[in-house]
Amino acid sequence: MTVHIPPSEEELIQKAKQGSLEAFTLLYERYLPKVYNRVRFSIPEQDIEDVTQEVFMAVIKSIHSFRGEARFGTWLRTLTTRQIADYYRRRPHRHIETELDENLPAPQHQNESEEAIMLRQSFRKLPVRYQEILLLRFSDGFQFNEIARIIGQSVEATKSLFRRAMEALHKQVKNGEQL
């Protein structure tokens, strides 16, 4: 019986850099859930697909310059954050659109509970640094000491920022429930 060992991340990156579409597709499939999750919690519903796609377009354009000094996931997270920032830079009327978005049906998440939709809308109203720390812990699964290293703060300051982010989100969720 032969055991199929999936190619390592390094192998896939090397092959993708040499022009293998198959390797790139495997990387795409592996990282899509994480990228998509970040994007859907930060971008209005109608633009989630476009921004998710733009993140991977950015990977195509710059994978040749990825030297492996950081982990691929970290590099991709930076690209995602940059694409989200670019999105809001191109569209300065973020809040107006967010309000409009709230009234739109959610095409991708039609079966999603009201609770989930309300959480996402509350989440998008948080300052970016609060969104980031919550995503790093809950979505990316980093420990607090790792998050501290990523954001360049002490562990204590990181935990404090995390608590403030949680409190701000809690307040937004409560406000959402009252409406």
Binding site: P33, F41, E115, L119, S139
Partner: peptide
């Protein structure tokens, strides 16, 4: 809520 909904989910 965050534990439930912030997990990576594919589109």
């Amino acid at each position: 809520l965050l534990q439930k909904y912030l997990k990576p989910a594919p589109p």
